[in-house]
Design a protein around this nucleic acid. Sequence first.
DNA 1: TGATTGACGATTGGCGACAATCGGCAATAA
DNA 2: TTATTGCCGATTGTCGCCAATCGTCAATCA
Lengths: 254, 254
Amino acid sequence: MASLSIPRLVKTPIETQAATALRASIVAGDIPAGQRITEIEIAGQMGLSRATVRAALHQLAREGLLTLVPYTGWTVMSLSAQDAWELYTLRSAIERLAAQLVAAAINDAGKADRLREAYEQLVSACKRGHAARIAEADFGLHQTIIALAGHRRLTEQYALLEQQIRVYIRSSDALLPNPGMVVAQHKPIVAAILAGDPDKAGALSEQHNLTEGRRLADHLLALERRAADARQETVPSQRSRGATSTRQTRRARA
Amino acid sequence: MASLSIPRLVKTPIETQAATALRASIVAGDIPAGQRITEIEIAGQMGLSRATVRAALHQLAREGLLTLVPYTGWTVMSLSAQDAWELYTLRSAIERLAAQLVAAAINDAGKADRLREAYEQLVSACKRGHAARIAEADFGLHQTIIALAGHRRLTEQYALLEQQIRVYIRSSDALLPNPGMVVAQHKPIVAAILAGDPDKAGALSEQHNLTEGRRLADHLLALERRAADARQETVPSQRSRGATSTRQTRRARA
DNA sequence: TGATTGACGATTGGCGACAATCGGCAATAA
DNA sequence: TTATTGCCGATTGTCGCCAATCGTCAATCA
């Protein structure tokens, strides 16, 4: 009796499941950037012990998605121009390395096919012109290149950057992608990788990421300026601690 | 009464202190690479609750220094040729970015002086010829370049890589540095950064890191081969679970 | 004799309760 | 009125204990 077609269950500790669910909520924007949350509140909503939730929150803090304000609460990452700069410069360095590694090993079994497949999905999404699909296919192509590098630490590091970038994009008035430009930007990178040219692949990848990253960061900076201008025209409001209201981020005294 | 010269106390939760102490023990080799440890044992030694130690261990797992084998124990990171390759390729990408960023902003107040200072300390250590001092001054120069980039995520990522590299170096029969070569390798990098040439600084930095990283990885591979040869000549020993003995790494069934 | 099952010791997983810390607000003093 | 102090509610920090899981070994079966 070789196999009964019974699927293998993947057991995941509840701590890890809680971290996964919270991560998804943050990245999806259900818990907005800058939001204050507390262990008690989340534990209540999830039906778990506070200690379990606490472990999950610490996990997300390590990933940069949350910041702990000791004895006060936790805040979802908030984003500045400096954060944007850090994210896109680091992402560009990581993706350059991946493009080089994949180009150098593109003759390995199946790699070229997988890359072509991911690129075709991007082209397909751009033809349909649906913005969310384009964005996902764009991310998908990048992820494929990263995965094909066969470099666990690189993959893990990239995932951390990606989720922060997703929070970033979602919390801003994200720019709509131009489908024609998206394809045009990625085509030479894919071609260089498929041609097995690490230097060219790395350089093109880096250029693409720096250009797009700067553009998005500039856009956010403009948004921040507009928000700051608008804030100067409103009357400062009283702040008090409501019994059940959630809090915006606040400074720890440390 | 402006100031009483009373130093500001920096309070650190005991969880964090435990993580810091354990990290230091692992990086220093007091807990060897590949070693199995348990929460009960560590909690007993540290005089803390197991839950507190557990939080610290999870922190270090996130940093890649420990691996959790569920319901069985924790193991200190062990190192393969793949790990070595991952570490040096990623380190090289990170340091290239830092060299570029510092070169582009080398005219900022104090940066050139700090870089020169770190380099002089390396030269000084090499003149004295004391291996541990050379290694520390070498790390110090790299750390200075990273810190001067003014990029928090980069600094944090580099710290994680660095500590893994330290475990790596300590667990192998580390190569002794040749003082003259160490200076010669770093001089052109520092010069390019001070000249404000990001492209040249990045390229030289990358080349240096890839060369040194490959050399160390090859060295470790040779060690692994020697160990594997030696292992084939010994009689496989019985394995049993002693009540108090610590365990070597074992495979999870997942 | 080899394969299977069940029990048990050793471990981590998760819980709720007590302890420590922080910030806001009211009371008090100058 | 402003500055200081003390109290309290709300939060995280830490603890010890029960629950769940895993691997090993002995007993049983074919």
